[in-house]
Amino acid sequence: MTINPKAKLEETQDGTVVYNFDPLIVKSHYEIDYVHSYAQDSEFFKALGRQELMGSKCKKCGYTYGTPRGHCMECGSETEWYKLPNEGKIHAFTTCYFGGEAFLNETPFHLVLVEFEGVDSLFMSRIIGVDTEDLYVGMPIRAKFRRNLKLNPTDVYFVPKA
């Protein structure tokens, strides 16, 4: 047992950043590393290292997905992995001049929704090697892959088809 009426917190030099005194507004810092599992989507990210784009195909109804999902939303059945073509067409596009804070230093960049021949749903990606005025719906484009993987969906990106 310790009863110490003279107990005292140690003083520090940390201080705090103050933006305003009335009302009192201070800086509050927060950061975190997540242990993020790709779980049933893992194969998609691994396949990017083989320069393959993987979607899903429903084992029961045959619906094909340009972005993988473990179960079919048409009939609820399990899907299997399905190799997508490395070429497609622009379904919709934009050029982002702003973005989430983490991506501001990459602006401007283009986002596209890609449609693949014979595949029922789309895939969202970046396209490079074009200006906004070059982009149009229906533009033929081709997937390219990073050699040194980041193991996130930026390992694949699109360029205009030669």
């Binding site: 379904h91 982002c96 702003f98 973005g99 929704l113 969202m124 719906v137 930026t154």
Partner: peptide, 19 residues
């Protein structure tokens, strides 16, 4: 799939708008 490529909401709506 969508957030890590720089996806954000104005970008998503902009794609819907171009379509």
């Amino acid at each position: 799939f969508d957030y890590p490529i720089g996806g954000f909401y104005t970008g998503y709506y902009a794609m819907m708008a171009t379509r």
